[in-house]
Design a protein around this nucleic acid. Structure first.
Lengths: 349, 349
DNA sequence: CTGTTAGCGCTTTCAC
DNA sequence: GTGAAAGCGCTAACAG
């Protein structure tokens, strides 16, 4: 048998009876909200142990209007930077557990606001975490109107008054440029995300590219950006174009995983050695992926676990009644030097 | 403001009052458990719409003893085959949602049976899904004793009477051997998992290696298995040893991601071309990782989504009172030919 | 310091 | 077909 009969759990009434006190006294002994004599407390505790008493979560939730549950809303079919996603989830779950909360997974299409509305109206969860936030995210309004506390992992365009955590993409470009310029590179290519995302105003691309371009200009560095589709093939073409337009390129930055693989294939096919002939650096590439290439890739990444953790903490702060403080955080990028960048090659011709 | 004041949800009493019926009639209208006159039903429905009524999940759960929640117990700090994990979770979540259940994430150490016990005693969840199951898994006993229905993703040694889904590892080896033998290979190396796992009787390794060896022998194929630690360095050494012992090796199978990267590095350094000089095949490598290498890797994988989905379905079957049928499933391996295997090279010397 | 007493919002038996 | 009423197990005033 997979499961034996479900044995009946002891209730507070049982404990009260056995300890010879009232039910409420048992409650207060548990919460410590009011003083209990040492002797009573002991009687209650031994009764609880004897009965193997564990408070019923649902009754507690119903009576107190606190379920101890947080929802993690993750859109189905929309993946951010690959597999890093699970890191967020793991870290968020752990952070929640630390404060006595549990995480509920809610897969949901971004547009499906009807379900969202229903789901929060059920009163099951106390607060909501939003992943894969769009610059115009319809879910935000629904949550605001329902009065459910929430925290974004990411940002909308208009997020001044929202609670959120996000990667500070504005630092990624400058970090990369500085690193490469320090190595002597002055002509850099970028295999960025597909054009539609840029046109759609997708936050991460926009916030990354602008400061990158700006710093490059200030430093007198040539930067050429391509926006191929997210396929290996498109990446190959993009890099070939890049080399055509800028034969002097000595470094490339990738922000589009499949396309960047294509670019690296072309580099390999042309006999360009990494990092001797070409320095290579990826944005937002998971450790697993970064170590699969030969050589492994130097990356600039979002700190997923930190993001997940902070989001939960902010949300819980709101639940605890913090209505006033501005709870917004941009996390520092992580730089992993795995040796795929090196000094700019000297030109022989 | 992140959140406006939480507006009071209409209750069933409100609906009943507005529709001019009793509370219980509203309930029955909702569940359809007993016949309701067309006219009454309409009055109730319009009242519900007018009030924007949504049943309170917690009250429902308390009264009916059905929370609609399933727990997904995933051990912290123990990762199976890399990032495939999230696939299981996503698929499981979706499958649960289809049947009106929600998935609760419970990070938990395998040994922490005390927390597990407490957690199921709370009565919050109706059933439990176990990931990363060990051959001797202490959590199984706890769940059995508590009478909580559960389903394993994986297997214990003694799982005849348990509900589980697992990858059919016994097919992986033969599938790989057949594929390689078809291509003419007769001397094959395996970079498998670290030795401790084998000694500890870790299911996936044991179940994979034995049939692989057996079939190889039957087919007269030389197979040499190494069990390096899960590091690139260990993998390099292991492959060098392999080449030393078996200079005629023409194909290698990887079941240890970091180590296999090391092996591939050595192959590259020695100028062995894939697949011309060396055929390469990986077990349990995620698509992302498999496409990062050049060339991309042919893999034999567990069908994560299928596993997650089936696990939920089996669990729900148990919840629905199916106590008798044997609910056990071994899923077929997935073969992805990405071109890293090819005809065995002809010896030139 | 402790007990009494209403509920929380819904399910479900019993009765008409 | 419909209603009344007794809980589910716990919380939180309100009373000492």
């Amino acid at each position: 048998m997979t499961s034996t009969k479900k044995l009946k759990q002891a209730t507070r009434a049982d404990v009260a009876r056995m300890a010879g006190v009232s039910e409420s006294t048992v409650s207060y002994a548990l919460t410590g909200v009011r003083p209990i004599s040492e002797e009573t407390r002991e009687r209650i505790e031994s009764a609880m142990n004897a009965l193997g008493y564990v408070p019923n979560a649902m009754a507690q939730a119903l009576a107190s209007k606190k379920s101890g549950l947080l929802a993690l809303l993750f859109p189905v079919g929309e993946r951010g930077f690959g597999e890093t996603d699970f890191e967020y989830v793991e870290a968020a779950t752990a952070a929640a557990a630390e404060d006595g909360y549990q995480l509920l997974l809610w897969p949901n299409a971004v547009e499906d606001t009807a379900s969202l509305q229903k789901i929060v109206a059920q009163g099951l969860v106390e607060g909501v975490l939003l992943m894969e936030v769009r610059s115009q995210d319809p879910r935000v309004k629904v949550l605001q109107e329902s009065g459910t506390p929430f925290c974004l992992i990411g940002r909308t365009d208009n997020s001044e008054n929202l609670t959120y955590v996000d990667a500070d993409f504005s630092q990624w470009g400058p970090m990369a440029i500085n690193h490469l310029v320090d190595l002597g590179h002055t002509n850099i290519g970028v295999i960025s995300m597909r054009g539609e995302l840029v046109e759609a105003g997708y936050g991460p691309v926009i916030r990354t590219e602008a400061p990158l371009i700006e710093l490059a200009q200030r430093m007198g560095v040539t930067v050429t950006i391509k926006h191929p589709k997210a396929t290996i093939r498109a990446g190959r073409l993009a890099f070939e174009e890049l080399l055509e337009e800028q034969p002097g390129i000595t470094a490339i930055i990738g922000f589009n995983e499949p396309a960047f693989i294509g670019a690296l294939e072309v580099a390999g096919a042309r006999g360009m050695k990494i990092p001797e002939d070409l320095s290579v650096l990826s944005f937002g590439l998971s450790e697993e992926a970064a170590t699969m290439t030969v050589p492994a890739q130097t990356t600039i990444n979002v700190d997923g676990p930190e993001l997940g953790r902070m989001a939960v903490q902010y949300l819980i702060a709101r639940l605890n009644g913090d209505k006033k403080s501005v709870l917004q955080k941009l996390t520092q990028p992580q730089f992993f030097d795995r040796g795929s960048t090196g000094p700019a090659p000297q030109f022989s011709g």
